[in-house]
Structure formats: structure tokens, C-alpha cells
């Protein structure tokens, strides 16, 4: 009797553990397949020219994506420049005043914005910035990416600030610090590594966004430094090359995908190594 029950429980245990293990494998397999495919199709097209030359004119083989690499870097840089300060400030506000009515309203807005399809962000920025400025531009692309970045970073900042023990905040206030001094001088430094991790993950995420750039940054076959001109980017070029009829462009699109996903991977690994919560480990 009890033996039978015990055996049943053991079998159930094994079944459920196996199921979760299989599900976990299913998650890992696509990533491995993606990498395998990218490397086999794209690694051949990765050469010095890819990183240093402009795209070749239509019909010619060769050329590279140097301007798109630069463009993505510019877009991510400006998006971070505009977005990160706002996002961190909003995150701190949500953590400090989250219980008020306005605080929970802001959190709702951030969650909704996190869920907005990126193409909608692109259309919105097109209507408000591109039309107003009279043309596609690096600035519009960066704004679109910043709109994507702000809710992500704001929410992680909020979580990280909440992780800071309340004793630390009380410690500051017990010394006669004002609330903002406590927040800026003690709480934020304590949450620094977590916030930085969130920022890096968000930057990696927006670096790969395509839809918000379609009608904002638009793309550009040449080098571009000016904020008010269209600019090239890796995701857009991948899209453009992938739907083209040329085999050489297809290879380059694979190579660009490989570079992009490699960047995302590197940034994520970096973010993981940075993140450590001193109050958890000790």
C-alpha cells in the first residue's frame, strides 16, 4: 500500500522534472540553431572590408557595412543620451513615490509603453518628429529608440532602487540628510550596478530594433554625422539586403546579423558580470 503510493510519487516527480527539463532544452535549442546558421551562412562574408567599407552600389559585389555599424552606434548613443537620464529619474520617482496615485499612474504608463509594438513607436515618431522636421533623420531615429528605452530602464531602475534596504535610507536620514540627498548620494550608488545592468540590456535590445527606424532614421548608403540627416543602421540594412535578389547581399545580411547578435551577446554577458548586489552576497 504505502510502497505503491511512494512509487507513484517518485514516478510523478520524475515525469514533472523531465517535462521542465525538456522545456528548458527547447529554449536553448533555437539559440544554438540561430548561432549555427548565422555562423555557417555569414562568417564567410565577414572580412576587413565588411567593417571598413561602404556598401557597394547595386549590381556590384563586395563592399561593407561600416557606415551602418557607425549609424547603429550613433543611434544607440543618442538614444541613451536622451533616454537614460529621463528613465533613471522616472525609475527613482516610481520607487520613491510609487504608492501615491500619480506614482502608480506613471508605473501603469511605463508598463503600457513597454508593451507598445515598436512599429507603432516608429509611426508615432514619424508623425511628431519626421513630419515636423521635414525629413528622416538620425535625431528622429534616436528619439524613437529612446522612447523604446525609457520604460525598460525606468522599470529596472525602480526595481533596483526598491532592492536597496530601507535601513540604508534611514541611515542617511538619521544623519540629517534631506530626502533627495539620501536618494542621490546613498540609494542610487547602492543600486548602481543593477541600474547599469538594466541600461546595458536595454541598449542591446534597442540596437537590434528595426521597426522604429523604418520611417525615422530611414537608412543612408553613405557616412553620416549630422543629426538632421537620415542615417544607416545594421537592422535596417539587414532587412534591405535580406529582401534583395542578390546572393552577395544575402551573405552580407547573414554576416550583419551575426555581428548584431554577437554584440547583444557580449553586452549581456558584460551586464551579468557587472551585476552584483552587495547586500545579498554578504
Amino acid at each position: 500500500m504505502t510502497d505503491a503510493i511512494n512509487r507513484r510519487r517518485k514516478i510523478q516527480n520524475t515525469v514533472w522534472l523531465t517535462l521542465t527539463g525538456v522545456a528548458s532544452l527547447l529554449v536553448v535549442v533555437p539559440l544554438i540553431l540561430i548561432f549555427y546558421h548565422l555562423i555557417s551562412s555569414g562568417a564567410g562574408a565577414l572580412n576587413v572590408a565588411f567593417f571598413t567599407r561602404l556598401p557597394a552600389p547595386v549590381g556590384e559585389t563586395g563592399g561593407g557595412m561600416a557606415n551602418a555599424l557607425l549609424g547603429t552606434a550613433q543611434l544607440v548613443f543618442y538614444a541613451g543620451l536622451f533616454g537614460i537620464p529621463i528613465a533613471v529619474a522616472v525609475g527613482v520617482f516610481m520607487a520613491e513615490a510609487g504608492r501615491t496615485r500619480f506614482g502608480s499612474f506613471v508605473r501603469l504608463v511605463a508598463d503600457v509603453m513597454n508593451g507598445i509594438p515598436s512599429i507603432v513607436v516608429g509611426i508615432f515618431v514619424w508623425a511628431w518628429v519626421v513630419v515636423a522636421m521635414g525629413g528622416f533623420s538620425l535625431l528622429a531615429g534616436a528619439i524613437a529608440l529612446a522612447v523604446m528605452l525609457i520604460p525598460m530602464v525606468a522599470r529596472t531602475t525602480e526595481e533596483m532602487v526598491r532592492l536597496v534596504p530601507k535601513e540604508l535610507r534611514e541611515g542617511g536620514q538619521a544623519l540629517g540628510f534631506t530626502r533627495w540627498r539620501t536618494t542621490l548620494g546613498i540609494v542610487l550608488p547602492a543600486a548602481k550596478s543593477g541600474i547599469l545592468t538594466g541600461v546595458l540590456v536595454a541598449l542591446a535590445r534597442i540596437a537590434g530594433e528595426t521597426a522604429p527606424l523604418l520611417f525615422t532614421a530611414f537608412g543612408n548608403p553613405f557616412w553620416e554625422w549630422r543629426l538632421n540627416e537620415p542615417v544607416a543602421s545594421l537592422p535596417l540594412l539587414i532587412y534591405q539586403y535580406a529582401i534583395s535578389p542578390y546572393d552577395d547581399w544575402h551573405r552580407q545580411a547573414w554576416a550583419a546579423s551575426l555581428v548584431l547578435i554577437g554584440l547583444v551577446l557580449v553586452v549581456n554577458v558584460l551586464a551579468r558580470s557587472i551585476f552584483k548586489n552587495p547586500y545579498r552576497s554578504r
Binding site: P165, E167, L168, E170, G171, A174, I186, P189, A190, P278
Partner: peptide, 10 residues
């Protein structure tokens, strides 16, 4: 004030 749990700043 000195607290129950030591709370040095980071």
C-alpha cells in the same frame, strides 16, 4: 541613531 542592522553606506 545607530540601527539594529549595521547599515554602512556602499
Amino acid at each position: 541613531m545607530v540601527f539594529q542592522k549595521s547599515n554602512p553606506f556602499p
